[in-house]
Design a protein around this nucleic acid. Sequence first.
DNA 1: TGCTTATATAAGTGTTCGCTTATATAATGG
DNA 2: CCATTATATAAGCGAACACTTATATAAGCA
Lengths: 114, 114
Amino acid sequence: MLKTKVDVDQAAVILKLLGDRTRLTMVKLLENHDCCVCEFVEIFDMSQPSVSQHLKKLKQVGIVKEKRKGSWVFYSLNKESEFTIFIERLLDEIPNQDDKLEALEKNGKRITCC
Amino acid sequence: MLKTKVDVDQAAVILKLLGDRTRLTMVKLLENHDCCVCEFVEIFDMSQPSVSQHLKKLKQVGIVKEKRKGSWVFYSLNKESEFTIFIERLLDEIPNQDDKLEALEKNGKRITCC
DNA sequence: TGCTTATATAAGTGTTCGCTTATATAATGG
DNA sequence: CCATTATATAAGCGAACACTTATATAAGCA
């Protein structure tokens, strides 16, 4: 049987993780694009360890997954999680953040990574 | 113009608040019923100050509102908040918690409050 | 008025959080 | 193999969090 609703405790865990400006923006960006760590470092103007730690938390509960390509590690939304529908509905309610990636593109910082 | 989406920063604040098992369950219960503080104390088996502090946080950002009736203070979902749609869509994704109120009712603890 | 019940606020405490710097690991290319 | 680049992990730290107990405020009632 397909589970249509997420348990309250599980939902609280997801919401707590997404209740952080940085992680919420990350996940919204990943809705439409795969991104590598160094791109997030640029976008959030944040140290690389800090970015890695945020991504690790998102990965631990299965919100995102990673794929290594050469020396880069690309992150993407995990579409097979039991929380996928819940998260996608949630992301529908917040505005697109792709302007942040476009800004990278203009600075040539998107291409150097990919 | 009606705002259909919630700003990322605002969304993060809401999600952080709802990213707590106790507060999320409270809000889900308030979706269908007004509740007073003492009922939450029973339901969550938690100290009265702790319950009051959770409700205060929810009130501060406008998620809930309060109305005094005699010596009791009843809390309800604030339907006029700019986050109302966002929150109601979110609550749609988690299961009804009314069994907790029904349990109170059976113990006669619901009536003594209302 | 004084007593009881309901709720709020204050203060203290251990835990979690998000960051930092330093270091380890992994892959690339000379 | 060595140097460089990308990423992960470890350790430390101040701030925020969720609780507690003690106390204050507010309403109801004898």
